[in-house]
Write a protein that binds this DNA or RNA. Structure first.
Lengths: 224, 224, 224, 224
DNA sequence: GATGAATGAGCGTTCATTCAT
DNA sequence: AATGAATGAACGCTCATTCAT
């Protein structure tokens, strides 16, 4: 992305963190290296102690920012979806044609991600990999319902509802707009996962194959 | 299901377990109560110690059957898919019409599950809930690739390939058969998850809505 | 008590604190809310962090006043005994009859306490409960001897010696004046503790039963 | 004590421990060295980790026997009271004269303790010191009431009730039997504490002074 | 003088696992 | 084959305290 947006900051629900990691140097290091480390060793093996070692800081300092590693993952996921949402709004703003709008939205969500210079301390490529591999763990817990009530997933849900709205504009008579919207989101992640880890379960090998697959599926489904 | 099948046994790849849990009373208790306990407290909080307490046996005995709790989850998932595969084969066998065949397959995979009297020690309703809530944790690990090589996911993959084959029979020209097949599998689980935990992200509220949604999507996608 | 004494201040040995908590608003808030909080959660669970949160101040500020929570407890105990001593002196001053004097002293020490309007920021009822439940922890430590040398318990000891003196005046031949005096002090606390927590170990249920019990015991013991 | 009683075992309420420490060598070492270590460094500084180091065993093994250090202290206190109770029963059994009986009981409770050869792994002298210095911490907690309900203090309470019964036999008209009984128990400990740490608050310096003091006090109090 | 941020150390606990029976 | 006991290692977290402002 261009650098016009240098001052923007992805806004995250403030009861996900204890202290805003964007508010200090240490906070930003926590974000930067948690992404690197989770990608390296997986979320299961990731601990605040190891992160502390990596950033040359005591784990107790990290507790000033996040109550536990689970909330840190929720934060990273939220940031990811906030970042995608930003791109989606930017790319679809002012596009009059509903099909074109939805097409661009699917593209943003399902394409291969590249680094974004606007957020120096965040490696979006690694983060995307984390979201693909681990983010379901942020909601597949016994506490989903409470966390949902606490607004942990607002950005994700807003994304789904934006898609839903676009689908409805394309075809007001289509019955399963919400399910289709959430399927777009989930399929985007899942197909990328398979491509990486279980390639025999996908045709997504070539560039943009996933995007094309989803677009075809969505548009034939909602065609009047 | 009827009870004609009383003697059948779902065959599970034998390097998932150390000792076949179907081969002893203790083994069957391990399976029975691991399902109950994981459903109760979640896979994260589930430990062999707690399972041992529940079945009145020492945790070390459980190690005779499974190397660790992760493999036990792989076993349960495999069993689930094996069970579904059985139903799928049974329901589609001898159906000449390709569309009808695929339609029945989707139905088997995505419908709400009920208890199956053929497997007394397994509560299929709870198991389905576990697969919906937790099974992604069985492959979302750093070790997927190795485990795939070890054949942990053969049944799942065979299911995908069966679907793929049916899709191809319906329309030999459709390009993304594998992706569509894996999307059917994943969407079936995901929509049920949303229905349960984040209902605002699905239209799947009514009976069979998920099945209808998927069928519509699939058939419009592959329509010649 | 009447309000004639508005300007009095209980004098506490100044090496118990770093900075006199009576010398500032923050100091008084520390005293006020430490009493409330210790009563609420117990001394064990009480920390400067929690106290800081309660008074809307950083824990590091509290360290300006007290080196650690143990010294704060010593301070509170000392304040309690200083407060009791004041009442004792006030109530026995000018009483010529030795038995009457001792009787009034025992009364002061063992009666149920009520709030004293002279010290607005201190809730004497809660403080009494703390002294009953927790104050032994202020001297039951490996450091008693050193702390005694440092004068941490002067007020308490002065109280014992005042009682001792009164006992001796009643009966100059009684041999165990000091032990009896310290037993009066300890029994007053202990019986109140039992009344509250293990009532089957006391007859102290009715009003003033503890006072009557102690008086009877003391006077029969020292009777010539 | 003589060695006639070699086979006796002090019976402790079995929900104080997870596994009976008398049932294994490791368990007995835990008891033996916890007494030594608590006496050495104080209960506050005592941790299972340090105990583990001392007995050359991992702290996790200790958790097999006691849930936490607080319960271990409850166990030690209970053992102490059980041991005293045994002596008390033994010393008063068959004594017809009520005053003599009570006198012997007070003696048992308040005298200086010496090692008892019947319990090889327990150093009764150190244990007595622990009970004097630390045991109040076993009941001065926010959880007393619940723990009382759970029977943690049964032996202590039985001791009080035995004393109470003896007092009543001496003088059926005395009103405060329970309070006097609990005062005997408490004063015995407290005077020994003072003798050791704050000797200016006691006359208990000479041998048996505490015993004599208490006996005089009790008998003059209940004298008809 | 009061505060906010950061830290090191250690606690209590649990887990997965092994060993001996 | 199944069990019970024991262990090492690590986790999550909190505490008391210090430093810089």
């Amino acid at each position: 992305m261009d650098r016009l947006l240098q001052n923007i900051k992805i806004a995250i629900n403030d009861n996900i963190y204890v202290k805003d990691p964007e508010s200090s140097e240490l906070g930003r290091r926590i974000i930067e290296y948690s992404i690197v480390l989770i990608d390296e060793i997986g979320f299961e093996a990731f601990t605040f102690r190891k992160l502390g070692e990596r950033i040359g800081s005591n784990e107790s300092s990290i507790y000033r920012y996040f109550e536990n590693k689970h909330k840190l993952l929720v934060y990273l996921s939220s940031w990811y979806w906030g970042w995608l949402e930003y791109q989606l709004v930017f790319a679809t703003h002012g596009v009059p044609e509903p099909e074109e709008k939805l097409s661009r939205a699917i593209e943003i969500i399902s394409r291969n991600k590249v680094e974004d210079q606007n957020f120096g301390h965040i490696n979006e490529v690694l983060l995307t990999r984390i979201v693909i591999n681990e983010s379901s763990k942020s909601y597949l817990t016994k506490e989903v319902k409470q966390e949902n009530r606490d607004g942990y997933f607002v950005i994700y849900k807003r994304m789904v509802h934006r898609l839903e709205e676009m689908i409805r504009t394309c075809n007001p008579n289509y019955k399963y707009t919400t399910s289709l919207a959430s399927t777009i989101m989930e399929t985007s992640l899942h197909q990328h996962f398979l491509k990486e880890h279980l390639p025999s379960l996908t045709n997504g090998g070539e560039d943009n194959a996933t995007t094309t697959f989803i677009k075809e599926m969505v548009f034939s489904t909602i065609k009047k």
